[in-house]
Nucleic acid binder design. Structure first.
Lengths: 276, 276
DNA sequence: TGAATAGTGTCTGTGAGACAATATTAT
DNA sequence: ATAATATTGTCTCACAGACACTATTCA
């Protein structure tokens, strides 16, 4: 083997083809909050999480739904830049909250070849999306039910309902980490069912010790609306006074009011940074 | 474009060379607890974290220290399997606690070519490592000091001291997530300085709401020892009664004692699963 | 005996959970 | 007036922080 005396010299000779290579993708679970129309004039809108899915036009998994994603161009971009490029294409927005979620790399997750996918969570305020998305469709997260370590998730857009379930199997030697095993899944492509579950769980875990939720809120909101968002994400009702104590130093009251709702109007609040 | 009528038909024709490809590696920050010899017969050993580093024999970064790692074989293994293969080689152990940490993918993190690295944390009880590691060396984590969002980490083995510092720059639009920017680093190869910081922070964050710490403990331990491990990882002193309350339902008392320490002997405890 | 760690008791303040009470609007 | 949500008050209980005290060993 040749002896090199400097890194430059070594690199000049380096043949990058000696290692087996593979392709990577960035896949994104875009989460936002949508409102179901109120049935009663004085009731507030029911809020739910929604996620963005695209219908696959080509093989593999033709006709199934998948998360927005794209192949990494290894010469020019990072995985996060790749994700932003995809998001720009899908939503026409460039400044979306993005956070690396997990790298999925099962040997057969893509039937074409070995593809490793780094997934991201994107959180967005739905009001910012003016134009209807062309290829993608928003699915409401109707329910997330966990029983005996099996999670069943129900998604629905206007035309279609998707139900899939995943078993969370305790990892050997751990008391709190799980392998995800698909139990039932007819309509989601690749392993994106697992990405969706991982994303929903990450959001649920982080909502209580970070401020990420405000990435899904409009600039002005009532505390009732904010509380509903927490309730939807956490999957449980919260008590009003407790909730207000918790978020008190994360928001600031404005002098604006939300009126015309058939009941007592409420002050509009705004996200307030800092001050822990 | 040819029309396909089934996924099988499509795959038969599929040319996987149309996308640019790249190489991946798994890099592992192996963390364990070591004890400094007691100077006074009645004082307890001082505990510290230690991490495993290898000296690079080849370019690039020849002569610098790096984390154990290796190239992924895309045909045969997952990233975690790749990490376990490396760990087996370095420590001769197969059943080490392993957790995916983060995927690092800066465009120039490796001067040879584009290489994306998925990093893992491994936690191990040092007593299980009988034989001295051949190529790698344990470095004690002497200090982790954060001031004005700059973290300075000092590592040391018997012969060498490594000091590096990283700036944690608040990410745009976030209040709790940071980009890592190397400020000073002469001795750590690649971006492994950032992996080390990410690993130490992950451990610190998870110690309070998981049981991962027991992966670094021997089967029998005193509560004093366990408390020291918590203190080293959290970087602060804890109060005895509070600590005992917190871990009370994670451990069970045995009838064994630890004696001969120059002071009152203490009961040995053992990790107790479940019962939250 | 003295220095050191082991282990327990208990007071206090903080904060979440729970429930109650009052306020205000559109129909 | 009524139904609905908005907003605040307050009681209680759990628990972490703090400090004090007792126990036990080896040189």
């Amino acid at each position: 083997m040749k002896e090199y005396n400097s890194e430059e010299e070594f690199l000049k000779d380096y043949d990058s083809s000696i290692f087996d290579k593979l392709s990577m993708t960035s896949d994104i679970i875009v989460i936002s909050i949508s409102s179901k129309d109120k049935s009663d004039y004085r009731r507030t809108d029911k809020k739910m999480m929604s996620i963005l899915l695209s219908k696959r036009n080509d093989y593999p998994y033709k006709g199934k739904w998948c998360l927005p994603g794209g192949f990494l161009n290894p010469k020019t971009e990072t995985l996060e830049e790749c994700a932003r490029r995809v998001l720009k294409r899908e939503t026409n927005l460039s400044d979306i909250y993005l956070e690396q979620l997990y790298t999925f790399d099962g040997l057969n997750r893509d039937p074409r070849m070995r593809i490793v996918s780094t997934s991201f969570i994107a959180l967005v305020d739905k009001n910012r999306l003016k134009s209807r998305v062309e290829y993608a469709s928003w699915f409401d997260v109707i329910s997330v039910n966990e029983k005996n370590n099996i999670v069943e998730i129900t998604l629905s857009n206007e035309e279609e309902t998707i139900i899939f379930s995943i078993k969370k199997e305790l990892r050997k030697g751990s008391t709190d980490r799980y392998n995800f095993i698909t139990k039932k899944n007819d309509k989601i492509a690749f392993d994106h069912d697992k990405v969706i579950l991982a994303g929903i769980e990450r959001l649920k875990n982080k909502i209580n010790y970070t401020d990420i939720v405000f990435n899904m809120m409009p600039e002005y909101f009532t505390l009732g609306e904010l509380q509903q968002v927490y309730e939807v994400i956490l999957g449980k009702k919260l008590l009003d006074p407790a909730f207000r104590r918790i978020i008190a130093n994360k928001v600031e009251k404005t002098d604006k009011m939300k009126t015309g709702e058939g009941h007592r109007p409420s002050y509009l609040f705004r996200y307030k940074k800092n001050e822990n």
